[in-house]
Each structure stands twice: as C-alpha cells, then as structure tokens.
Design a protein around this nucleic acid. Sequence first.
DNA 1: ACCAGCTCCTGCTTGC
DNA 2: TGCAAGCAGGAGCTGG
Length: 283
Amino acid sequence: MPELPEVETVRRGLAPRVEGRRIVTADIRRPDLRWPFPADMAARLQGARIVSLRRRSKYLLADLDTGETLIVHLGMSGRLQADGDGIAAFALGTGGAPRHDHVVLTFDGGTRVTLNDPRRFGAMDLAPTDAVETHRLLARLGPEPLGNAFGAAYLEAALKSRRTPIKAALLDQRVVAGLGNIYVCEALHRAGIAPARRSDRIAGRRIPPLVRSVREVLVAAIEAGGSSLRDYRQADGALGYFQHDFRVYGRTGQACRTECCDGVVRRMVQSGRSTFHCPRCQR
DNA sequence: ACCAGCTCCTGCTTGC
DNA sequence: TGCAAGCAGGAGCTGG
C-alpha cells in the first residue's frame, strides 16, 4: 500500500487540480471502508471548497472552507485518481463501472476524483480543522521523518527504551510516522543495520546514518513518483518507478546492491511481515 | 506498559 | 488446467 512517498506523490498530483475548487457532488457509494463514514458526509462535503491539500504521515488532509478537514487514508490498496479536466481516466476495469470505486467527488470545473480501494482497509472521516491533529487516527503519530523534529537525538531517545527489533520500531507510527514495510527494509539496508537487532542495542554512532538513510530513501522514492507493486498509481494513473531502485525489497536470492558486498538478499518473517535484508552487510 | 499475534477485505501468485 | 493456500504495501485491537 501507499507509504509516505506514495501518499506524497498523490498529494502533489492532486493538489493543483483540487485546491481552490468547490465540491459540486459527493457520491458516497457505500457506507464505510474500514470504519463507517459519518452518516452525513456527503452533505458536509457538497458545496465545500478545498482550501489546501496537506499530508500528515500516510494521511491526506483536505482543509475545507467550512472549517472541517477531510481525512483520507488509502490503507493497503487504495487509489485516488483524478480525471475529467482533460486527463484521461485510468482504465480500472474491463468495461462497465470499475469495481471498488467507493467515493467519487466532482468539482466545479469538471475535475472528478475517485477513491478506489478493493481491500477496503482505507478510511475517510471529517474533523474540525483546528483540532485535526487530535483526531484519534492522528493523535499518537510520531514526527514526520522529513521534518525537523526527526533527528538523531530524538531517534536515539526513542530507541533506547525499546526492546523490539529495530524493524518493528521503525514500523511503529508512534516512533516515526509514515514508514511502511518497504521503506523500513530499504532504510535499514542503506544504514547497514540488521533488522533483527534490538532497538536499545544500536550504538549511538549508528543513529545519524540511520536517520540519513530514512530521509534519503524517502526523498528518492518521492522523486521517482513512489513504488508501484500491485495497486498503487499516481493521481493521474501513472506508475511510480522507485521499485526498480529497491536494494533488498522483494529481491530474495539476488545479489546485494551494496558496493563491494558479495552478499545475497534473504527474506525472513518478523512479527508476521516479510523482512528483506542482506545478512552480510547489515549487522 | 510493552509486545506478539490476530483481524478486517479482495485479489494475485504459487504450488500441488 | 484447476483449485486452494499463501501472501500482500496498514494499523487498531486483544490478550498474555
């Protein structure tokens, strides 16, 4: 599913098409995704103008001129795609109405934004803009990995009290918000840290390179338009292409891409999730 | 308090 | 070829 780089790519694609635009119709085609929508969501959206489209972690936040913010999470398989203002609609199905188009917003000027989510792990909710950070889905999120609050001092303190493997700690959204399985694997590989290493047993001198690796892999992925594995597409339907730059993710049995390392990428399972790593250069 | 495992759902891939 | 099990990028919840 979309991790931070994918959500940011979608935000950048959508923002110029929806900011300043008014929602003419909100077609809510089912009552829920992971959780029920607010019963009056359509009424609260219709007529509202989107002032700005922001991102917090993996959440898209559309601030409305009504004083509310629309919160969107794409779960594992969610897509948000725009069409109707000159861009061709991305072909989702083979004729007929595409399956799993759960919410369709039509804007003045003709732009249409469709939320498609086969697995329905996604979410949508409305909250007062001035209190959106305290919404139950956002309240416990850690710092943005690309923001100033995420640095070596912060991360060292956060890891010191945790006995879980570093892989699990970086996946924990309370530690740092926005990383998922792919980018944790990639960041740990770039930092040369073994995914199974206990968080509280990582030497202090190794923390700054880890922070740097997290930032580098996210920035590179955003520049590449995200990673397209199964479901993910950019807002205009285009594929991301960072998956071609993976150094470990999904590369079981292939050569490690670290310079001068002759290791082979291995897959293991940590807390039920696949971890890809090079046992040779990650310690 | 912390942490591992389960769970929601659909669909693609893999192996027999 | 057909079928069923396994697996997938998230994350809240439960129970040890």
